[in-house]
Amino acid sequence: MDRIRRNKYVIFALVFPGLIIYAFAVLYPIFKSFYYGMTDWKGIGEFNIIGLENYKKVIFEDKVFVTSLINAAVLAICTVLIQHPIAMFFAIIVDKLGGKLESFFRAVLFIPCVISIVVTSKMWVNVFNSSYGLLNKFLDAVHLGFLKHDWLGDQHVALYSVVFVIMWQGFGYAFLIYYSGIKGIPEELFEAGRIDGANSWQQFINITYPMLKPVILVNVSIAITSSLKQMEPIYLMTNGGPGTKTQFVANYLYTQAFTAQKYGYANAIAVVFVVICLITTVVVQKIFKPRDI
């Protein structure tokens, strides 16, 4: 029996098909990118190997690359400090509603998450449109016209508009995770709290928050790593503009390869990007590792 579990052929048959696909489409391209990253290939014709030149440039000289990372940080911070508290707050409220109302709100709040990012991004472009868009019309209607903006074109606002859309789209996930975290807290704890005369805030501080901590940590680390990887909303809404104000790494490397025709350089960005994602994930996990689990 132990023999069966050590059977090399069986192990191979179980693991190999998955591994080969994974290696082919995920690992291999990264090695390939590393190679192209060492060339001056313009995406056309022959090229020269130029060593680590591109990598040095990406890391030490490229200002747009830095902007992209800063934007990712802004997104991560906004997600953690704005989206998550709201999501948690509503998770707590919805949890208390009970019955049909509870399942209704839970279901509806997740709707944006099941719609394709292409649809939602394009939809928001239209909502932000200043001639017929929903947002400016709404502001006019409630006599807040002075708040009207060129939401995706104004250099001071564009990034936050993009950040808002990404948070809007991801809200359902954050909400649902907190919601199920709260559902996982044994009802007796609240019961005991109530008997002790704890008010809502005390209940939150003394029961919900500590019990929810592992979920929060997981949620926050997901938020940080996924902030780094955003591309589609940017590609579809601003393409990094105005200028490079809303550029994100993934979109930047895409435009460097296919618009600026710096294919070698774009591959170098891709590799640095992967390394940054790996480091961030490891660091985030180190910091946020739930100690008691």
Partner: peptide, 8 residues
């Protein structure tokens, strides 16, 4: 230029 021409 029209409003929000940068993003049009």
């Amino acid at each position: 230029f029209q409003d929000s021409f940068v993003s049009a």
